[in-house]
């Protein structure tokens, strides 16, 4: 990936920075320039909003035929996560066995490597999720 393309999304990918429409208060992630509900009324009113890093698994899959750059992680778990603030996002679930993941499982954001531009290139970091476990 081109460096500027990743660099400009760092706040979003590191810290789940999305936007909130000040007109209807709905939260969006990834950020949008226009609120799909308020349209014109939202222009200039989409303000940065840090989303909660917790959510539940809305759906998931265990990938055996990987995306490029994920060959070493096979099998890996991808999920659509329903965040507490409303939006759903697509992200990996790590640090557990596939059998432990269920629709409705509670998850929280962790910070991991997303990929790299080959051995000599930039390393990309950002959000993944891990199951919330009862702490002892």
């Amino acid at each position: 990936m081109q460096i500027p393309r990743f660099w400009r999304q760092i706040p979003n990918r590191y810290n789940l920075i999305g936007v909130q429409c000040e007109n209807c208060k709905k939260v969006y992630f990834p950020p949008r320039i226009v609120c799909p509900d308020c349209h014109r009324l939202s222009i200039g009113k989409m303000k940065q909003y840090k989303l909660s890093d917790k959510g539940v698994v809305h759906s998931y899959t265990v990938i055996y035929e990987p995306a490029e750059g994920f060959e070493n992680q096979v099998p890996y778990i991808m999920a659509i996560i329903q965040l507490e603030d409303g939006p759903r996002i697509t992200a990996q679930i790590v640090d557990c066995n596939p059998e432990e993941v269920k629709i409705g499982s509670r998850v929280e954001m962790v910070f991991r490597r997303l990929g790299e531009d080959g051995k000599a290139g930039i390393i990309y970091y950002g959000y993944k999720f891990a199951l919330v476990k009862t702490q002892t």
Binding site: N72, Q73, V94, V110, R112, R113, L114, I123, Y125
Partner: peptide, 16 residues
């Protein structure tokens, strides 16, 4: 470390 962990991700986890 997990396949997607390195010194940076560990540092971030500890700092957070």
């Amino acid at each position: 470390p997990g396949a997607d962990e390195d010194t940076i991700t560990i540092a971030v986890a500890a700092a957070r």
